[in-house]
Computed example of a mutant assay.
Amino acid sequence: MRFQSSIVALVALAGFSFAQDVSVADVKAAFDTARIPTSLNLAFEPTALLTVSFPQPNGTPVVLTTGARIPRASTAGPPQYKVNGTTTSGPFVIAMVDLDAPTPQSPTWSPIRHYLGGGWSANNAADPGVLTTTTAAVTAWFQPSPSGTDPHRYVFLLFNQSPEFVTQRQVTAQTSIVSWNLATFAQQVALGSPIAGTFMLVSAQ
């Protein structure tokens, strides 16, 4: 019940307003309130800020504030990423998972892997921090698709890329996206703890 109350509080506060995060401490607090580290069994001590934005048909992207509620229609993506506060320009690994499938009250299918890819780097002098990659994704972007439930927590995490990730075969395009243990995978391929992250709440409407 405590988790359900936390999600209700987050939804009430989030509304549909979007802006870029400016505080690592606030991001961590939002993750803790939503019990994301507990759900992932993964430590989250961010040192940088990850900004996720979704291109829109009208040309004005939706920029995600951590914990904001996003209409599903705005999440077709694939999203764009920007990082601020890192000591290197990459490469990085990005993972996105749904922690609440099929429902937040009974997340027996979670985590569901909605994206996993590496080779992300911030090397554009004209737009510092913008992440780009020429590396094919391990799991291509899969739009959030909750169905008739309370909002799901969709979590984006940024890791420093390890040599082991480049050569890993634990996860391929053929590997099931359901019940994927991100914490175990991160340990297997020496990703360590995420250096940045954000999340959004998405429901069917």
Rank of each mutant, 00 (worst) to 15 (best):
F3M: 11
F3G: 13
I7S: 04
A9R: 13
V11K: 14
V11Q: 10
A12R: 12
L13N: 08
F18R: 07
Q20T: 03
V22C: 06
S23I: 06
S23T: 15
A25F: 06
D26S: 04
K28P: 09
A30Y: 00
T33H: 07
I36G: 07
P37M: 01
L40W: 00
A43I: 10
F44V: 09
P46E: 01
P46L: 02
L49Q: 10
V52C: 01
S53L: 06
S53R: 07
P61Q: 01
P61V: 00
P71H: 02
A73S: 12
S74T: 03
S74P: 12
T75K: 15
T75P: 11
Q80Y: 03
Y81F: 02
K82G: 13
F92I: 07
V93F: 02
M96E: 05
D98A: 07
D98G: 11
L99T: 14
T103S: 04
P104M: 01
Q105P: 04
S110W: 00
R113K: 04
R113D: 12
Y115S: 11
G117P: 09
G119N: 08
N123L: 06
A125I: 06
P128F: 00
L131Y: 01
A136M: 13
A137H: 10
T139W: 09
F142A: 11
S147T: 09
T149A: 13
L158K: 12
F159M: 08
S162M: 07
S162T: 05
S162L: 02
P163F: 00
E164N: 15
Q170G: 09
A173V: 08
Q174A: 08
S176H: 15
W180G: 03
T184E: 09
T184P: 05
F185V: 05
A186L: 02
Q187D: 08
A190R: 03
S193C: 03
S193G: 06
S193P: 06
P194H: 03
G197K: 04
M200E: 13
M200K: 11
V202F: 00
A204L: 09
